[in-house]
Simulated scan of single mutants.
Amino acid sequence: MTERIQEIVAGLPGLKDVTGVCAVADERVARGDAAFVADPGVALARAYGGAKPLWQYRSVFDHLLRLLATTPGSQNVRQALRLVSSPEAAGRRRDRCTASLLASCRRPEELAVAFSGHASEELRACLVHELVLRGVAVAEEPGIARWATSPHWRYHPLGWLPLTLSGLEEGADLPSYRLGGSSHSMPYGPSEGSPYRGTGGARVPSAVEVTTPEQAAAMGSAVANWAEESNGLIEARVFGLAGPLDAGAVPGALLTLGLESLAGAGEKKAVLSGAACPPARAWRVLFAAASTGGAYNSGCHGAYGRLAAWQSLAALAGVADGADAAEAEARVSECAWFGFDAATDWFERVAWDIGLAALSPDGRRLAVLAATDTS
């Protein structure tokens, strides 16, 4: 370890501002010395990357990783991978974040090194699906294809996902990264649908709730992070209908189910709003909720966000256990989907609001997922 790196490591806990350390790293990368940036990052992880890392360490480490990932040059990619592969810095959450960062900032051919050099199997799995989300044909990409198509990781949770995008997944909202931060779109919030006036005429058969804990958990997969890591609320319920429900009668049916999220809806000041929702739109909303998180967290990023979105979508559609991705997509496409919200005490109607209902092809099963979060 050089004397300068020793000084950085020893002096970090006493700093009230880490901009000076970051400026040194910026200058060294500009001179082409990527190794100098990774070296103190590894040393800092060894010294301060424990269960409760110093805020100075977290800030500097994040800057070093982003600096290496966003600066052109193959040597910067290699050093970024070395940085996150040190035992003290490694972890599933960091692997997910790093895969999203690299896939967003680098060409696929630059990332082939991750499949032969420094990188955990978890990082590789995440990187594969981050690239798939960006339209990369990973099964045809030199340096990536052999690992991506190998059967050795089919038992990994992400192994359920196909290596190509389905038609429902096109247009996923993916983050963009820069050295100073990141940004992403939020395809949810107050509904832009029409108010439901309850004009009558549509028959609404009686309903019995048939939700199981397993179904509720599966339907809520995409928004689980809102409740576990932020201030969110989730309502996930399934109802069996005594007779076929017409898709056009779904809004009226929602008001009869006793949903907590719609308590008081239908009254003058709490009008139910919504509209028919293409399944691709439902997937996009669920993916954003899972991948980018709620008001106080950053979600699980693209790869696991993709998986969680499909888990929620499949459960809402009533996909049978053990179904593969193609079977899940077919069933999801057969259902009628509806997006909704209302000015009730439950929905925040600010930024993080979701209301989705899925009606089975025979009209006898109605599944509902509502989620809200607030800062």
Rank of each mutant, 00 (worst) to 15 (best):
P108C: 07
G248H: 01
S230C: 13
H184A: 11
L102V: 03
R46V: 06
T211R: 09
S182D: 14
S185Q: 12
A276G: 07
A303H: 06
P40V: 15
G198N: 05
W153L: 10
L262D: 00
L307E: 01
T149A: 14
W160P: 06
G159F: 02
V84A: 10
V128H: 07
R78D: 13
V21K: 02
A263C: 15
C22S: 09
G91A: 04
P278F: 00
P162V: 03
A103F: 06
D17G: 06
G198T: 05
S150A: 08
R92C: 12
Q75W: 08
L158R: 00
A326T: 12
A51T: 08
S100K: 10
T292D: 14
E214Q: 14
R134A: 07
L262Y: 03
Q75V: 15
A43G: 01
G232S: 10
P87G: 02
V319D: 12
D324L: 04
L255V: 05
G143S: 05
R134L: 02
P151C: 07
G73R: 09
E122R: 04
T98F: 05
C126N: 10
Y296F: 11
A30D: 12
G181Q: 09
R331I: 05
F287N: 14
P87R: 10
R154W: 08
G14I: 06
T292P: 11
N231K: 14
V210E: 12
A280G: 13
A217V: 06
P142D: 10
G293E: 05
P87S: 00
H63P: 01
R134H: 00
P142Y: 08
T374D: 14
D362N: 02
P13A: 09
S191I: 01
T372H: 14
L68T: 05
S261I: 07
A323R: 09
S74Q: 13
A145L: 11
D345K: 11
A263P: 08
E110Q: 12
Q56W: 02
H156A: 01
C105T: 15
L165W: 08
A270P: 06
W153H: 13
V223T: 06
V21C: 01
V350I: 09
R281D: 04
W153N: 09
V128K: 03
S86G: 10
P244L: 04
A103Y: 00
A30K: 15
A43K: 02
L255I: 08
E214Y: 09
A367C: 08
G299N: 03
H152T: 14
P13Q: 03
G117N: 08
G193D: 02
S191F: 07
L158G: 00
E348Y: 09
D324N: 14
V204H: 03
G189K: 05
G14Q: 07
R146A: 15
V204Q: 06
A295R: 14
H152K: 13
G294S: 06
E228S: 14
V9T: 00
L272R: 10
L12M: 04
A218K: 11
E7Y: 12
C126K: 02
W55G: 14
V350A: 14
N76Q: 07
G266P: 04
L165P: 11
R94I: 10
